[in-house]
Design a protein around this nucleic acid. Structure first.
Lengths: 339, 339
DNA sequence: ACTTGGCACTCGAACGGGCGGAGTGCCAGC
DNA sequence: GCTGGCACTCCGCCCGTTCGAGTGCCAAGT
């Protein structure tokens, strides 16, 4: 048996099954692809593929469908990322180009990904921990009430209200503001706290409680879990599928409401140049068997600031989806890096 | 025929249908509610109710189900808002009490509403246009680059990056900051623009272009569409329903992805004391026939800052849902008003 | 050693008839 | 105006049949 052809057969099965959504038989296979052999031969190959666990039969005497293992082989060795067409690229560019601020970029990216892939899109906000401080602003709202605003180089703004134990005169506020900015502007958020450790000590005993309160509020926003924020869209695409889906769709929707789950799904894809695919049972959440996640990091050249990806049934168009995800990540990375 | 009893019958039909999800017949009605009359009598009443358009038969010789008109009558005259139990109230309070900032309040509210009602929850951000300016901050990021930050009394922070046509010295920035704050702090966002109209004229010809650029960025954030932001959650609850739902669920999910649609759904519910219900075809979006929206405004005593609500199938538990929506709105209103 | 056509077999999907039951409308009697 | 009785309708369900797609295996051909 020709090993080469067996792979061709697997590839053909995946392609057909993805486009028709129906188990594919030996005859249909030779009809649609010119494999140059008879159905009987294909049947032998299919039997072998089934033995090896790449395909399976829903029930005796139906066509075959790929298993997760089959998709895995397909993604790893039998296909390549499909680049977008130039009109598609242009559409991405113009759609993302008009974004006003960071929120807008993220929202637009989600929509774009969902439309392009016709699947559920997930985009993580550029991570605070990897970004740097651009400015800290303190605003007196009342005698003892201060608003702490943290602005990062990724355009993110974090805010905290502080009720200080004592009144905070404008002079103290000005001094603090100057100190804070001179110490941590340009510093990575993760490294900023150590720069602030001894700051309250610089103030008089009288001023210290207020200074401490303000500093700790700032520290809070520095480490804030917000860095892990995630936006999702395109859930309507979940309903585009087979009639048995009401059973499948509920656990998926439930999973998608959990920020934590979304984050875990995006996974370890930290390298902006490589698309990661997690297929069916491979992904870390039960109830998402039957779905695959295609994800990638995005950011500037040197490092990923965050991740994005799409989620859909294991029977998805992997090459096309991977192409779209990669292309979008590149544009978004560019925008975020220069913004 | 006793008019009174006919209404009792309608009420019973709605209640039974909501809890069983199945057409309800005359016999089942007398069994489950002690109406004190025989099934035959009920049948007469039901025939009358059907003539008047309050109930209908899915097919000849099946039980009856309420029409939109039937639900409307039920909501308006046959039921009252069901107050929450004290444990429920306590849960709301503790769940919302821990919120860190405005974003967090909104996110928690959505989750809470979705869990409480087991339906799709929709919460609008407190409207900018009704709120007032608390502070304007200008931050120099580079020689000609300024970040404009607008802080409102509802705790909202809006930001805009400005590339000024000329360099912006710190002196100009300070002057502008002082002017801006003295002119519009405390002023409603909608009224702020007129206070700024002549501001650039106060500056020298040299400074004017930069001042103008900064002012117009501020104006932008004042009128920003962001005021219309809406958050949604609990979509998994859509899948809890009948087997025919894959057909129904797609248009609903699609509609819910459109901010504009969500806003229209929340409708005119500006009075924080009255729960508004829009039933089936009454609501302004096709594809949402079959769903009802229960909404209410929230804010301080004097006026609503925004709206929230839930969306579910017309066959929902109206009294309970209305109770939950109203209770949540009160707590959120309190929190937002004092924040 | 592969490939191929033939053949028997399996099993699900689709069709159709026959039942049973829930529910109705109507009517005559109270 | 209420009630029990009765005939009728129609949906949902069960079940048997048929049909076709697809398989596995085998013997024969290259």
């Amino acid at each position: 048996m020709v090993e080469e052809r067996k792979l061709d057969v697997l590839r053909a099965i995946v392609q057909d099954y993805v486009s028709t959504q129906e188990p594919v038989g030996s005859k249909a296979l030779v009809d649609r692809h010119n494999l140059g052999v008879s159905p009987a031969t294909i049947r032998n190959d299919m039997a072998a593929l089934e033995d090896e666990g790449y395909i399976t039969q829903p029930h005796t005497s139906a066509g075959r469908i790929p298993t997760d293992k089959g998709y895995r082989l397909f993604v790893d060795r039998l296909s390549s990322v499909k680049p977008l067409t130039t009109p598609e690229r242009r559409a991405i560019q113009s759609f993302l180009g008009n974004a006003a601020d960071l929120d807008d970029v993220v929202r637009r990216t989600v929509r774009l990904l969902a439309q392009l892939t016709r699947q559920v899109a997930v985009v993580q906000y550029p991570s605070l921990s990897r970004s740097t401080v651009r400015h800290v602003e303190l605003v007196a709202l009342a005698a003892s009430r201060v608003l702490v605003v943290l602005i990062t180089n990724t355009g993110r703004v974090e805010q905290r209200m502080v009720d200080a134990p004592t009144d905070v005169p404008e002079s103290l506020l000005g001094e603090l503001r100057a100190q804070l900015n001179s110490r941590i502007v340009g510093v990575r958020l993760v490294e900023a706290p150590e720069q602030l450790a001894d700051l309250p000590d610089r103030f008089t005993a009288e001023e210290r409680p207020a200074a401490t309160a303000i500093c700790s509020a700032l520290l809070e926003s520095l480490v804030e879990e917000h860095e892990e924020r995630v936006v999702m869209g395109g859930t309507a695409n979940l309903a585009r599928f087979s009639p048995d889906f009401p059973l499948t769709i509920q656990p998926v929707l439930e999973a998608l409401e959990e920020q934590m789950v979304l984050l875990r799904l995006l996974g370890e894809a930290t390298d902006p140049s490589v698309v990661t695919v997690s297929i069916g049972h491979e992904n870390p959440h039960e109830g998402l068997t039957g779905t695959s996640v295609v994800s990638i990091g995005y950011g500037n050249e040197s490092e990923a600031l965050a991740k994005l990806g799409v989620l859909g049934p294991t029977r998805m168009d992997y090459p096309g989806t991977m192409g779209a995800v990669r292309a979008v990540a590149r544009y978004v990375g560019k925008i975020v890096a220069e913004g």
